[in-house]
Write a protein that binds this DNA or RNA. Structure first.
Lengths: 243, 243
DNA sequence: GGCATCGAGATTGTGCACAAAATAGGATCG
DNA sequence: CGATCCTATTTTGTGCACAATCTCGATGCC
C-alpha cells in the first residue's frame, strides 16, 4: 500500500468560506478572554451547538482547535473545560512573553525613526480607545484592548510568525490573570501603555524596551502565584489510569 | 438558552488511551521531518486511513492537528498537503528561532556551573549518537538528532512553554530546509553541536550564546531564499473567494 | 490545432445514528 | 445514619452514508 504523492505545490487559499467555524472560535475565544467563561468552566458540546445554531460536530472541531491553543483542556470522555493554568504554567507563560516581547521591542527600536505616520496614527487611535474604555469603566473592553495593544506592537515589528506565537501567549496569560489575580489592587495597565506609546513616538527616547519589561513584570506581580496545593484533588481522575 | 457552567476545577488526566491518534501524528510528523514526505505532497485521507488501518475521521482529526502546527496546509475541498513555506515565512521562522534560542542559551548560561552530571551525561550521549549517525552516513538520523539537540537544550533551560514553542519552530524550519536547501554544500551541523556542547560543559567558557546564534545563521545561510516569484500560480485558487 | 464545455469518477465535507463512558440519583444493606 | 452498589440519564466518542466539490479526460466548436 503506497501513499499517493504529488510533488506539485498547491497555493494557499485563505478562506474557503469556512468562516462559520472561525466565527465560533473567535466568539468562544473572546468569551474566555473577557472572563465571561472563567477557567474551569465546562463547555458542553450540545449546549454550545444550540447556542451557535450549528451541529455538534462543528463544535467538536472548534473545541479541538481551542485545545490545541491551550485555551481549553480536553479530558477524554469528560468533555472540554476552559483551561486553568497552574501557577508554574503561568510563570512560564509570562517568561515566554518577556522573551518574545523583548525581541519585538528590539525590532521596533531598530526601525528608522520617526516611525511612519500611519503607525503613529494607529498607536494614537489605540490610546484613545483605551482611554475611552477606562473612562467608561468598561472592564471587558479594557481587557480586550490591553491584549490588542501588545499584538499591535508585534504587527509593527513585522514578523508574522512571532506575532502568532505571541497571540497564543496573550490568550494564555489572560487565562492566568483570570485564575490568579488578587482581589485587591488592579493597577490598570493603560497608563503603562500610554508611556510605551510616548517612548515609541519620541525619536530621542530609547526606553521602550525597558518599559515593556517593567510592564510585563508589573502585570505578573499582580498575580497571586503562591504554590499552595489545590484544595481537593479529584481522586477518581488521579487514579484513572490504574486498575 | 444558557450554557451550563460549572466552576469546579477538573484536574487533567494525561492519557485517556487516546494514544492511537497521537501515534499517527508522530508517525506522519516524523515522515515529514525526515523528508519522506516532501513539501507539497498531497496527503489523501483515504490513503492514510488504509496505511494506518484506521477510520478516515481519525485521519481527518490528525490532519487538523498538524494543520494547526503549520506542518500541513488544509485547502478546503482540495485536501491536505505537506506545508511548503514561502521564503518570507522561512526567514520569519529562523528569526523566531534566534529569539527563542538566544533566550534559552541565556537561561543555560545563568545556570550554576558546572552543569549537573546527569545533564552533561545526556549531552555527551547525544554527541555520541550524532557522531555515530554521521559516520554511518545516516541522513535521516542526522536530521532527527539535529532537531532533538535543540530541543534537549530547551528542556535543560526548564521552561516547558518555550520548549513547546521551539518544537513547532523546529518542525517548520525542517520544512523550510527541505524546500530551500541548496543542492551543493551541506556543512553538517554536528560539528557546530559538538562545539556548543564543549562550551556548555566548560565552566570557564561563556561563548555558548554566540555559538548558537552563529550556528542558526549558518543553517539559514545554507538555504536558497531568493525571492524569485512562484513559477505558475494557481489562478483558480487566487480568485476562489470572488464571484 | 487550440480552447472551452461537459460529464464521470474520485475526494472531501457534514449530519446522523448508535456505542461507550461518565454522572447523578436512589435503593439497599451494614 | 452512612456507605456502597446499581440503574437511569446525560454526555462524549466513532463509524457510516450521503451530499458537495473538485479533478481530469473527452468531446465538440471555433
Amino acid at each position: 500500500m503506497k501513499i499517493a504523492l504529488t510533488t506539485a505545490a498547491p497555493r494557499r487559499s485563505p478562506r474557503g468560506r469556512g468562516g462559520a467555524e472561525a466565527r465560533i472560535v473567535r466568539s468562544i475565544g473572546e468569551a474566555i478572554a473577557d472572563r465571561r467563561l472563567p477557567p474551569g468552566t465546562k463547555l458542553a458540546e450540545e449546549s454550545l451547538a444550540q447556542v451557535f445554531s450549528v451541529s455538534r460536530e462543528r463544535v467538536r472541531k472548534v473545541l479541538l482547535l481551542l485545545a490545541q491553543r491551550q485555551v481549553v483542556t480536553l479530558i477524554p470522555n469528560r468533555g472540554a473545560f476552559v483551561a486553568k493554568p497552574t501557577p508554574h504554567e503561568a510563570r512560564e507563560v509570562f517568561e515566554a512573553r518577556r522573551v518574545i516581547e523583548r525581541a519585538i521591542m528590539d525590532k521596533l527600536a531598530a526601525l528608522p525613526r520617526p516611525l511612519p505616520p500611519a503607525t503613529l496614527a494607529r498607536l494614537n487611535e489605540h490610546r484613545s480607545q483605551e482611554e475611552a474604555a477606562e473612562r467608561a469603566g468598561d472592564r471587558k473592553a479594557m481587557i480586550r484592548l490591553s491584549g490588542q495593544f501588545h499584538l499591535l506592537l508585534a504587527e509593527f515589528a513585522g514578523n508574522g510568525t512571532l506575532t502568532g506565537i505571541l497571540a497564543g501567549l496573550i490568550d494564555r496569560s489572560g487565562l492566568a490573570i483570570a485564575a490568579f489575580e488578587r482581589r485587591s489592587s488592579h493597577t490598570c495597565s493603560a497608563e503603562d501603555h500610554r508611556r510605551l506609546i510616548d517612548a515609541l513616538a519620541d525619536p530621542q527616547d530609547d526606553t521602550a524596551v525597558a518599559l515593556m519589561m517593567e510592564h510585563l513584570d508589573a502585570v505578573e506581580r499582580q498575580l497571586d502565584l503562591d504554590a499552595r496545593p489545590e484544595p481537593m484533588v479529584d481522586l477518581k481522575s488521579v487514579f484513572a489510569s490504574e486498575e
